[in-house]
Amino acid sequence: NKFNKELQWATWEILNLPNLNEEQVKAFIDSLKDDPSQSANLLAEAKKLNDAQA
């Protein structure tokens, strides 16, 4: 289903952001699991944090 694909993509993207630490990655992944419908928003937040920590 649509959410599953978005969830998988967002998870992969977050796991490959170079500037997030392990705790941050885990928090984002946990949030994705809690509410897959928010995957696009969570991914945007993760990318923002990644850029801020570059």
Rank of each mutant, 00 (worst) to 15 (best):
N21K: 09
P18N: 08
F28M: 04
D35G: 03
N4W: 15
Q53A: 09
A10M: 08
N19K: 03
Q53I: 07
D51M: 11
A44E: 06
N1D: 15
K26A: 13
S39A: 13
Q24H: 03
I14P: 01
L43M: 05
I29P: 00
L15T: 13
N19I: 01
A27L: 12
E45D: 10
Q8Y: 11
D34N: 13
L15G: 05
K48G: 09
W12A: 14
K5G: 13
E6M: 14
E45P: 00
N1K: 05
A46M: 02
N50R: 01
Q53G: 06
L43A: 06
F3V: 15
E22V: 11
K33I: 15
K33P: 02
L32A: 05
L7A: 08
L7K: 02
K26G: 05
L17R: 00
K33V: 12
E23F: 13
P18Q: 09
A54G: 11
K47N: 06
F3K: 15
L42Y: 13
D34K: 09
L49K: 04
A44F: 08
A46H: 00
D35W: 08
K2D: 15
Q24K: 01
L42F: 06
F28V: 03
L49H: 03
E13Y: 13
L20H: 00
L20S: 00
E45K: 13
Q53F: 06
F28E: 00
W9R: 12
Q8A: 13
N21T: 11
N1G: 13
D34P: 02
L43S: 02
L42H: 04
L17N: 01
L17M: 14
Q8K: 06
L43W: 04
N19P: 00
L15P: 02
Q53H: 04
N1S: 04
K2M: 14
L42W: 05
T11G: 03
F28H: 01
A52V: 09
N50E: 01
L43N: 01
W12T: 14
W9Q: 13
T11Y: 07
Q24N: 02
E13R: 05
D35R: 07
A46L: 02
N1Q: 05
L7N: 02
N21W: 10
S37W: 09
S37K: 07
K5S: 12
Q38T: 04
D30N: 12
L49T: 06
K26M: 11
E13D: 03
W9I: 10
N1A: 03
N16I: 06
T11Q: 05
K26N: 12
A52L: 14
K26L: 09
D30V: 08
A27K: 10
N21R: 12
Q38N: 12
N1Y: 00
L7Y: 05
F3Q: 15
K47A: 05
N16W: 04
L49Y: 04
E6L: 14
S37F: 07
E13N: 06
A52H: 09
V25S: 12
N41F: 12
L17Q: 03
W12D: 15
Q53E: 05
E13S: 05
I14L: 12
L49V: 13
E6W: 12
S31H: 10
I29M: 11
P18E: 11
E22R: 09
P36L: 09
E45Q: 14
K2E: 15
L7Q: 04
E13V: 12
A40P: 07
N1T: 04
N50I: 01
K47D: 02
K2G: 15
L20T: 00
L32K: 00
K5Q: 14
S39R: 05
K33Y: 15
K48V: 09
E45T: 07
A52M: 14
N19H: 13
K48W: 09
S39I: 15
L42I: 12
A10S: 03
N41P: 08
N19W: 12
N41Y: 07
A46N: 00
E45F: 05
K47W: 05
A46E: 00
Q53W: 05
N4L: 14
Q8V: 06
D34A: 13
W9P: 02
E6H: 08
D51N: 10
N50Q: 02
N19Q: 06
D34Q: 14
L42E: 01
L43T: 04
I14T: 01
N21S: 14
F3W: 04
L7H: 02
N50H: 02
K26R: 12
A27M: 12
N1E: 15
F3A: 15
L17Y: 05
D51Y: 08
N19E: 04
E6G: 04
A52F: 09
L20W: 00
N19D: 05
N50F: 01
S39H: 14
F28S: 01
T11K: 05
K2H: 15
A54R: 10
A44D: 08
K5E: 15
E13G: 04
L7D: 04
A27Q: 09
Q38D: 10
K2R: 11
W9A: 11
S37L: 07
E23Q: 13
S39M: 15
L32N: 00
A44P: 02
W9V: 11
N16E: 05
L17S: 02
T11D: 03
E13K: 08
Q24S: 03
K33H: 13
N21A: 08
A52I: 12
K5R: 04
A54P: 06
Q38R: 10
E23N: 10
I29A: 03
L15M: 13
S31G: 10
L7V: 10
E23A: 14
N4R: 03
I29K: 02
N50P: 00
W9E: 15
N1W: 00
S31M: 14
L15A: 09
S39P: 03
D35E: 06
S39K: 06
A44R: 06
S31I: 06
L15H: 09
N41L: 11
E23I: 09
P18K: 12
A27F: 14
A27I: 08
F3Y: 10
E22P: 13
L17F: 06
S37E: 12
N1H: 04
Q24T: 03
D30M: 09
S31A: 14
A44L: 10
A46Q: 00
A10D: 02
L43Q: 02
N16H: 13
K2W: 14
N19S: 07
E6P: 03
S31P: 01
A54D: 13
S37V: 06
N41D: 12
E22D: 14
W12Y: 10
L32W: 02
S39D: 02
Q38H: 07
L32T: 01
K26I: 12
Q24A: 02
N16Q: 12
F28G: 00
E13A: 08
L49S: 02
D51L: 08
E45G: 04
E45L: 09
F3I: 15
E22Y: 12
A27H: 12
Q53T: 05
Q24G: 00
Q8N: 04
L17A: 02
Q53N: 06
N21I: 07
W12V: 11
A52K: 12
A10L: 10
A10H: 05
N41I: 12
S37H: 07
L49P: 00
A54H: 08
W12M: 14
S37G: 11
A46F: 02
L42R: 06
Q38F: 05
D34S: 12
D30I: 08
L15I: 08
L20M: 02
E6I: 14
Q24E: 03
W12Q: 15
L20A: 00
D30L: 08
P18A: 11
Q53R: 06
S39W: 15
S39F: 15
